[in-house]
Amino acid sequence: MEIRAAKLRTVDLPREVSVKVLGVFENEILDMIDEKPDLIAVDCSGLEQVTSSHINALWLAYLYCKEAGVEISIASPSEGLIRVLKLMDLHDLFMFDHDTIKTRMRKAVRSISSEYTSTYADEFMADVDNINLAMVRFLEFIKVYGLTEIAEFELKTVFYEVATNIRNHSGITDKELIVFTARKNESKITMVFADSGKPFDISGFQIGFNPHQAGLSKQKRGFGLELIHRLLSTIDYKRLDNVINVLTLEKELE
């Protein structure tokens, strides 16, 4: 299992920047800096109009990051934002990522298993409620496959355990996204999860579980990875651009 410190944090630049919203944005940046990320990406994809408040927010974010020695990039900037930053001689202070992290995650999950027709795609924030809601949506979808009750339950369990594992171990915040797709052919279902947390490879986990030993040692944790591995046929992990974790899971259907 590989766990390294390299990590990215993403934050949305608010559309409407009131004093209160600016305060929240500042706190988000400061909280992220406390986590000592390698890079903070400010996602500007939601911006329709650029105001001086937006520029102030970016300037503040830049100052905080510079002071803390954290790199900052602007993700998915509009032409208007770039123009304003150039006019104010601020353009060269930032790195620019014209493909948002979200877009890169979506592309990553959709490019895998491309031989299948894309049948299901979802993205959800990594908090408990949104994971549960996403699981319910996925369950509604897999009903169309006409699987057995046991097979449906196994897929539900895999979804929950993997999403919860990402939430608990990849270091992403409740507001960051997990991107998910599922595809099915006659004999198997392929599920792909992508997140922008720190590298977390569960594919190398060794099955060696002894239930009696677990009981005797009063073991409370560590059942999740065992369960995931026992319920799946294959697990593949990739780290893309040192930014995105992509977990591809296959389950043979009987």
């Binding site: 009981g215 409370k220 944790r221 059942f223 999740g224």
Partner: peptide, 17 residues
């Protein structure tokens, strides 16, 4: 209706006691 691995652990951790 749903038992996660954490739920399993909460029981297994107490059986021997």
């Amino acid at each position: 209706e749903f038992l996660s691995s954490a739920g399993v652990g909460s029981i297994i951790g107490t059986v021997e006691t």
